[in-house]
Structure formats: C-alpha cells, structure tokens
Design a protein around this nucleic acid. Sequence first.
DNA 1: CCTAACTAATGAGCTTGGCTAACGACATTC
DNA 2: GAATGTCGTTAGCCAAGCTCATTAGTTAGG
Lengths: 142, 142
Amino acid sequence: MESATEAQLAHVLRDAILRFNRRVRQARPVGDLTFSQLSALTSLQLAGALTPRELADTERVQPPTMTKIVGKLEERGLVARTPHPTDRRQVILAATEQGREVYAQFERVRDEWMAQRLAALTPAERETLRQAAEILQQLARS
Amino acid sequence: MESATEAQLAHVLRDAILRFNRRVRQARPVGDLTFSQLSALTSLQLAGALTPRELADTERVQPPTMTKIVGKLEERGLVARTPHPTDRRQVILAATEQGREVYAQFERVRDEWMAQRLAALTPAERETLRQAAEILQQLARS
DNA sequence: CCTAACTAATGAGCTTGGCTAACGACATTC
DNA sequence: GAATGTCGTTAGCCAAGCTCATTAGTTAGG
C-alpha cells in the first residue's frame, strides 16, 4: 500500500521534527537571540540586503510578523533600516557590523550543541541528515 | 576538516527544520487543533494515560506549559482528568472517546498535506526522510 | 506522631512569535 | 488626476513557551 506508506512517513516525520525543534529551542542559552531572530539575521547576511517583504517571504512569515522580529534586531543595533533609493515606500534592511559580529559569535555557540550530537553519529547517518535537510528545504518552498 | 563539516551540517539542518516547521504550521486549517495540542493528544493515546509531569517530559515542555495545553484539550472535551488512585497530588490524563475520534480525523487531514508533497518525491528521497526521522527522534531524546 | 523537607499540579505574569484587519504613504495605471 | 495597487507598519488578538510562587499532599527524621 503505497499511499499508506506515505501517510505514515508524513506522520513520523512531522512528529520527529516537532520534538527535535523543541529540543533545539531548549538548548538556547538565556539572553541570546531567539531562533527566529537568528534565522532572519542569517537570511539578511546571506542575501546582503532585503526589503521587509522579501525577508518575510524568505522566512515564510507574514509581513507584520517580520516587522516585529526586525524591530527586536534593530533595538539591539544588529540590523539597520535605510530608505530605498527610488521607491520611498520601501525600506532596505541590512545587518550592521555589530550584527555580523554578534551573529557569527552566537551562531557558533548555537550550533555547538547540535554539532556535538552530530559528532556522535556515524558518517552514514550524517550523510542521511544532510540529504534530508536539502529535501526539507525543498518541501518548505513548495 | 571534520568538525567544520559537522558545524555546517548543524547549521543547514537547523535552518531546514525551522523553515519546514513554519511551512507545516501555515498549512493548518483554521479552528483546528494546534500543533502542540495535537502532539500532546498523540502522546496521550500512545501511552494510554499519563500524569501531567510525564506528559510534559514526553513533550519536552515545562509542567506549567503542559497545564495550559491540557486545559485547552479539556475545554473541548478531548481529554479527561481523573484522580490518581493512591497519590492524591497526582492526576491521570487520558483521551476521551471524543478525543480519540477528533484526533484520528484531524490527524488524517493534517498528514494529507504532507503526504501529497511526499508523493512527489522519489522513493529514495522518501527513504532518506524516513531514516532522518529516526535519527532526529534519537537526537531529540538525547 | 509531628514536623521538615520534598514533590505534583496549578496559577500568575511575562515574552515571543504567529496571525488578520486596517491604515497611511507612496507608486502606477488609465 | 483619480482610482487602484503596493509597501510597511500599527493595533489587537491568541498560542506557546518560560520562571516564580502557591497549594495540596507525601515522605522521612527525630
């Protein structure tokens, strides 16, 4: 039964991801950037600069939600808003120098927890996860 | 550089899961059970019955958080609290008949979305995800 | 036996992060 | 130049997580 297999996989996968996600969030050191903030900052740096709309789309979030997240980042001086050169409705978001530093620093700490656990896996298991990550990204975009 | 590889995998995996998770949450039909509520209900049914503490541990959440989630489920008549036979501090949580029905129904709908997308993948990709799900569960428990 | 210390569940109150609806400023199109 | 559309934000809602404190009950020591 092919479709039963897929439904079961859907179930198992969803469950695994829910729990894993919660586990990772738990490992967050107090006072640091939250998951969502870090992710937004990452997207900004990878892209160089984005408008709020673009960033919201990238992060799969509605624009007002991104306004909030960017607000928090701006408060901390990690992201700066500059006016769009031609369209005065739009805004350009970019990480500040401090934002890049803080990002690199916390990113390292953040990933440490997971990297430790990944190190305990076999190379084959890591390869499976690497491939799965790609597939999940693809699914998230669909 | 072995550790660099793991750090990178940690990063990629975390990112993929964050986005995938958000995408799945977006697909939730309005008015239904939330992700967390559904997960708690699932754990309860799989275990048969649990105390709030046990359920909180299973769901990797603090007890007060579970109190809230269970409260919502109880309001809807999906979960019932009964006193513990010997220890009067404790409470036994179990899904009601209605809870089991509602669960099965929404679970099916919920998984449909993902199953559709999974069906578009190759069998090899699905196998990768299946294995990844197991590994992630294992990581979440560690 | 009774008091001290522990444990279970909940309550109170906070923050974050989602959402929708609505609005003001600007751009575009007819 | 008026209607329509778009961008960002504000306002206001709710869920879900946390910590700290409280109440009720259990257990262990003297």
